[in-house]
Nucleic acid binder design. Structure first.
Length: 289
DNA sequence: CTCCAGGCGCCTT
DNA sequence: AAGGCGCATGGA
């Protein structure tokens, strides 16, 4: 065990921290100036991009920083990943526009629950819903400085003890019973998230699909953003639009099934990364227009 | 005001 | 198997 410190620099290059934390894969990061703050692995954590890489701080000194290295996936050689992408116009444009975009490795339950909230909502509103359930049900975490109070994402067992009414008071709308039902099944072990990273992508997806409010898209988000299944390819409205416009512009009728099959074969072993590049590329384009 | 948002579940053909 | 619709809420 190394000497405990409250600050550490991860020496990484080709890592766009802002793009990564604000690309719709995680919903808890808040930016103040050039500093990003959130609770990771039960610790209030701040991150800042520097010349040398990423500088991290925590409230209480820790000796082992592997929890954060793993979360940030600092060991990933992103140029190696990008090299596997198909060499076509859309991907070249997306890579050019999104240099340094990465995938995080989030907590499985937090990621899954967050995406249960995501259906038919804008990213800003997902963030607001997540913040409300953290404040109401999450454990308070020690937090340095004048940032106010910080709360961890509530566990499945804690949310399972909430009422649907309480969840609706967090403005979850019709998602409240979905989150409650999934919380109960996970906390009772009807769906085992603890082994989900080891059982293979397809088996893991089948497991997640047992949960109420979890369909193909939300399952794929959890598989990609928290389980490390890097070929999972979530198809949401943005990606649907991207695939239709960029790859099927000449076709009149493109079915979701067709796009699903295409995405699995076209984007290679790191298809999930390719998906995130396309997603971010489309959002940036829309933001400019 | 209307439109639609990192969809899902359920009900029709 | 495939398509349509309702759902709560609130930003644009």
């Amino acid at each position: 065990m190394n000497r405990a410190t409250s600050r550490k620099t991860f020496a990484v290059s080709e890592y766009d921290l802002a793009a990564t934390l604000d690309s719709g894969q995680a919903f808890r990061w808040e930016k103040t100036g050039d500093v990003w703050a959130a609770v990771v692995d039960g610790r209030w954590t701040t991150l800042r991009q520097t010349e040398d890489g990423i500088e991290a701080r925590v409230a209480k000194p820790v000796g082992d920083w592997s929890w954060l290295a793993d979360y940030l996936q600092v060991h990933v050689d992103i140029s190696e990943v990008v090299a596997t992408f198909p060499n076509d116009d859309p991907m070249r444009a997306a890579v050019q526009e999104c240099k340094g975009l990465r995938l995080l490795r989030q907590d499985v339950w937090e990621c899954l629950a967050s995406f249960i909230l995501s259906s038919n909502k804008q990213i800003l509103q997902i963030r607001q819903m997540a913040a409300r359930i953290c404040e109401r049900f999450g454990e308070e975490v020690e937090c340095a400085g004048a940032q106010g109070r910080a709360f961890a994402f509530p566990s499945a067992s804690r949310l399972a003890r909430a009422s649907e009414k309480e969840l609706r008071e967090c403005r979850l709308g019709y998602r409240a019973p979905y989150l409650l039902g999934s919380s109960r099944m996970v906390s009772e072990g009807a769906v085992d998230l603890t082994r989900i990273r080891e059982i293979g992508c397809d088996a893991a997806r089948d497991e997640l699909l047992k949960l109420p409010g979890v369909g193909r898209k939300i399952a794929d988000c959890a598989l990609l953003f928290s389980c490390g299944y890097q070929d999972a390819f979530p198809i949401d409205v943005w990606i649907m639009k991207a695939l239709k416009e960029l790859y099927f512009a000449r076709k009149r009728k493109v079915t979701p099934k067709r796009l699903q099959v295409f995405s699995q074969s076209h984007f290679g072993p790191y298809g999930g990364y390719a998906q995130q590049y396309l997603f971010h590329y489309m959002r940036k384009r829309a933001g400019r227009a």
